[in-house]
Design a protein around this nucleic acid. Structure first.
Lengths: 187, 187
DNA sequence: CCGAACATGTAAGGTGTTACATGATTGG
DNA sequence: CCAATCATGTAACACCTTACATGTTCGG
């Protein structure tokens, strides 16, 4: 049940419309909890019905019209309770690792291209995070900023992990393929 | 569409029954792709219908009777293709990071207990992985073993990341709380 | 007025989670 | 023979993903 709380957090930081939320979920919030606009609109409906948020009373609520939401006290209470509760970390689920394990069984043709592609993606993401840290958190002093920087650093460390591991993986696969080729030539 | 391929990989490594698969998904395979027995039985049914696997012809296929599966050539072909294809990495989704960001807005009461709890969990997982590496991969020479060790090392690096980051987070939260307490006392 | 971008939504299908149901085997 | 465990499933629900549908605003 994380998505509703992600939305509550976003709306507390700044009241927004569905599309604005979608954009923010493509940026800062999406760095650790992604969501599509369909998920967001559906969830906004539920949150409004539950009395956690309300539409800012402004224009007519017609289709195609912008509709901004703000968090009600009940929503803030719900978020506070959720954030301070218990929740076990979810086990890792990564398709690339799974594919590597599959490659150990069915052979790893063309695997290095995919590893290089992922490496490039993670390098780019790492560069983006690093730039954000320098630009927005050069001097983070308020508790809010310090917590947000802490979260950003988790992202940086994670991308750093992937970059390093993918380089190791490429070296390993190159050696395996090399050995395979040599033994093929030896026949 | 990763679960069916995870099952195909597992069955290629060793033909198994549903419950045996479940156990293996609690151990080695589950380290990077978890699944419950309900998911596994449902998926075994689909894979059998698709002609990717078949039940080993042995006893009567009655309810409550053990039923072992093996991979058919079509299943191996499907897995090979999937493993060598393209797939973008999924964006990170982590509830703890989200809760930290929420805490930046609604306050971080009781947060350090939760951080300490997660730290203990990740320390234990790291110890388990490290032990496996020493026990099973002290001298990994075959291509299979080297790939499997590579995957295991990803797990080790990830758990190491969490342990280090959680320690940093605890220090940060302690400072913030300390400052908060001091400013409360100052009133 | 028309196309592009903005803005909100519906529908369908796949995946994961939780709770429950049923039969077989084995140890006491 | 009874309880615990093994083993295989069903059902219902929540969640995520993809594709599609509809209306508004604004620039040319």
């Amino acid at each position: 049940m994380s998505l509703p709380h992600a939305i509550l957090t976003a709306l507390l930081e700044k009241p927004s419309s569905g599309l604005e939320l979608t954009r923010r979920f493509d940026r800062s919030i999406g760095y650790f909890w992604s969501a599509t606009h369909q998920q967001i609109y559906r969830e906004l409906g539920k949150l409004e019905q539950a009395g956690y948020i309300r539409a800012l009373p402004s224009e007519q609520p017609a289709r195609g019209q912008k509709k901004e939401f703000e968090v009600l006290p009940a929503g803030r209470a719900e978020l506070t309770q959720w954030a301070s509760g218990k929740q076990d970390p979810k086990p890792l689920r990564d398709a690339l690792l799974l594919r590597l394990r599959a490659a150990a069984v069915v052979g790893c043709a063309g695997l290095d291209d995919e590893l290089r592609r992922h490496l490039a993606l993670h390098e780019r993401q790492l560069a983006e995070y690093t730039e954000i840290e320098h630009r927005d958190f050069a001097s983070a002093t308020s508790p809010d900023d310090r917590l947000r920087r802490l979260v950003l650093r988790a992202g940086i460390s994670l991308e750093t992990f992937w970059v390093e591991w993918l380089r190791e993986a490429l070296a390993e696969v190159a050696e395996i393929d090399g050995a395979g080729t040599r033994s093929n030539e030896a026949r």
